[in-house]
Design a protein around this nucleic acid. Structure first.
Lengths: 219, 219
DNA sequence: AACGATATGGCACACAGTGCCATATAGCCA
DNA sequence: TGGCTATATGGCACTGTGTGCCATATCGTT
């Protein structure tokens, strides 16, 4: 069991946590160096010196260890959303929670955190099975976020489809922006924030019905 | 090789087409009866009397045979979009292409086609690996549809992010509507069409900035 | 009828994932 | 401290997916 801050209580718990982290780190390193498919679980467990059987007690499969960091990111996002002030409009709460988490993960910490984040995203995007699994995780995250929005707004769960629509709209814009940022060469965090803003502007143009006014170039 | 109408030219081609269809049918039947995970490839090939090795020459894996029909549906959709009149606004073209294909697949043909469609969707939704793969296919379809929209509007490919945003918005609404339809008990095609309309209405409410006016119930 | 192209079948193999049981280690209590 | 219990780990053995390789069968053509 872990308390809310993530601090392990007993010695056993701490050791398990260390083993888990070691497995994620070793896997991450191997995946980024050799590629996901070319890396076997045997290589991962060899690097951490645990048995193959133990690996499967920590993770349901190879995908899970590969997406471990991404899922931590999602958890942060959901946390940030739940702690947003209750008087914010739903979309505002979503966007500010996002900005908050990106600032924490991509900007701060080490300078290399942004690089790591980008490399991981590219690996996921280039590995069909990982892309598929991460999209499934996104759908699951959307459900939880929609439930949270419904709670904030005091709606009966599942009775109003606006939370689901809003959350999916949010993720749509984010996905387009992230794709653009990922495929580009500029990997600065400020660039990501600006791309997101631009994407929202373009979406705003679509939503107000203004389309047929010629090309709207990027940047 | 197949010509545009799908008619096989040689005898060899026709035989291959028949084998492929037999594999898809047998797989579909087994998946729906026993579940995807509980069905082995050995059982599928036994039902069609081909070797396991041959199966993998027709399909890249178990997922592919399970999603074969869904991918045909996607191809129909893309076809319908490309043949829409050029003077239709992008979103109009998308929505009419969708209605067109749904009418063809769910309404007409046999009466059981709608049932089949719904059962398949539920199986995909309930099988994590299939859900993941189908979401990945959706993303790929979105890319192609965005390219088609860009072409229709005479935009430089990749220079304007509005096609991507519009297509992803379209799929977002469709996904929310389809989810609602799938989990419900009413499986009539008219119900699906109405759910889609309602979802668009709700999205319209979101887009015009009107949110905080209390609960908007479904139906 | 014979030839070349291609589709199929039959291995052998690597890897992912699981069930089962033996063993080792942490936590706890006398 | 010594021993008991719970739990974490390791070591098989096994199923199933997916692939490379080569022999064989079948189609299409001259």
């Amino acid at each position: 069991m872990r308390d809310t801050a993530g601090t392990a209580t007993g010695l056993r718990e701490r050791k398990k946590e260390r083993t888990r982290e070691a497995l994620v780190d070793a896997a991450q390193e191997l995946f980024l160096r050799k590629g996901y498919d070319a890396t076997t679980i045997d290589e991962i467990v060899a690097a951490v010196e645990v048995s193959r059987r133990t690996f499967f007690r920590y993770f349901a499969g190879k995908e899970e260890v590969a997406l471990a960091r991404a899922m931590e990111f999602e958890a942060l996002f959901l946390d940030a959303l739940t702690t947003r002030p209750a008087d914010e409009a739903p979309l505002t709460a979503l966007r500010r929670a996002g900005t908050e988490v990106f600032a924490r993960v991509v900007d701060e910490e080490h300078d290399g955190a942004g690089q790591e984040f980008l490399r991981m995203r590219r690996m996921i995007e280039d590995t069909p099975v990982l892309l598929a699994a991460s999209l499934r995780n996104m759908i699951e995250l959307e459900r939880r976020m929609a439930a949270e929005i419904a709670r904030r707004e005091g709606l009966t769960p599942g009775a109003d489809r606006r939370p689901a629509l809003l959350v999916t709209l949010y993720h749509s814009v984010m996905r387009v922006a992230m794709d653009e940022w990922t495929e580009g060469e500029v990997l600065e965090a400020a660039g990501l924030a600006r791309t997101i803003e631009d994407a929202w502007d373009d979406m705003g143009i679509l939503l107000t019905g203004r389309w047929t006014e010629g090309e709207i170039p990027r940047t």
